[in-house]
Design a protein around this nucleic acid. Structure first.
Lengths: 149, 149
DNA sequence: ATTGCGCATGCAACCGGGTTGCATTTGCGG
DNA sequence: CCGCAAATGCAACCCGGTTGCATGCGCAAT
């Protein structure tokens, strides 16, 4: 399991410390799993990934709390996929996360980040307050296309 | 809210018949409620709206089944909102639903359709199959802005 | 090194949206 | 009017997510 610079142990620990928080095994492992993952992960996927490590399993509730805490700390993002299940992804400092494009597979529910031009934000009717913008492409990923479905 | 041609009783019945289906009270009422609604409705909101009519209440499960059936029949659309709960909206034939912009209120979870320029679809990596595209603006609707937070 | 505070964790129970199985009703074509 | 398949209602169930509470532990002050 290789860890690149952003997901190395010291980097994770310093990221946690940077937000003035206690560095606990659960947080380190969860953030590490999140950063090592290719895309947005569901709670079940993260749990499964952590279970394969040689450490004691993390409680379901703790995982939820750590994930939520990471989100409020700005270290992760939370979003519901097409199935209504929440998916979490690491907030990588070197990646511009403000405006990019997500591809959501209707087959497996997976989320892929596309390198795509961020479209200009349209103007809102009066009274609406803009917080962010997301472009979601629906379709099927190559694997689901191949397995027909 | 205009209950015009597209949401009149005969129009609903003929729309149901057009897909070769039995015209039942539940389907008529649900599709009617959906077409009369200003935006995407959650299951609970639809149930509440139907309960205020002078008809016997529709079972929770039946409502789910009718909604799903309407989706597969192409008469409605289903999507998960930011909270992970499904919202349903009528597929109005005169409205181009393929590409438009949704505003999702982070306060109340409501969904609003904006009249906005549909941005061009970005090109996908090879192997991905495009099914549709959605632009989601996150923020707060005027009412939630006013009630502050 | 020790102590002590308070946050983090684990456990169990709970909640609500969504689904499934099955018996009964009903639309609608014959 | 009959009969059958489709639709409905009911109850139980599943699963993702949350809450309450007692215990454990990171961390800093001593």
């Amino acid at each position: 399991m290789k860890s690149q610079a952003t997901s190395s142990l010291p980097a994770i620990q310093s990221a946690l410390r940077a937000v003035g928080a206690r560095v606990t095994p659960a947080r380190v492992r969860v953030l590490g799993a999140l950063r090592a993952a290719p895309g947005a992960q569901s709670h079940a996927e993260i749990e499964e990934a952590l279970a394969q490590e040689a450490h004691p399993a993390i409680d379901r509730v703790t995982l939820y709390r750590v994930l939520d805490w990471l989100c409020t700390a700005g270290l992760a993002h939370k979003a519901a996929d097409a199935r209504g299940v929440f998916r979490f992804s690491a907030a990588q400092p070197n990646v511009e996360h403000a405006a990019h494009v997500h591809f959501r597979c209707t087959g497996c529910g997976g989320v892929f980040c596309l390198k795509a031009p961020p479209p200009p934000a349209p103007k809102l009717p009066r009274g609406f307050r803009l917080a962010g913008m997301a472009v979601d492409i629906r379709g099927e990923c190559p694997r689901c296309v191949r397995s027909h479905s």
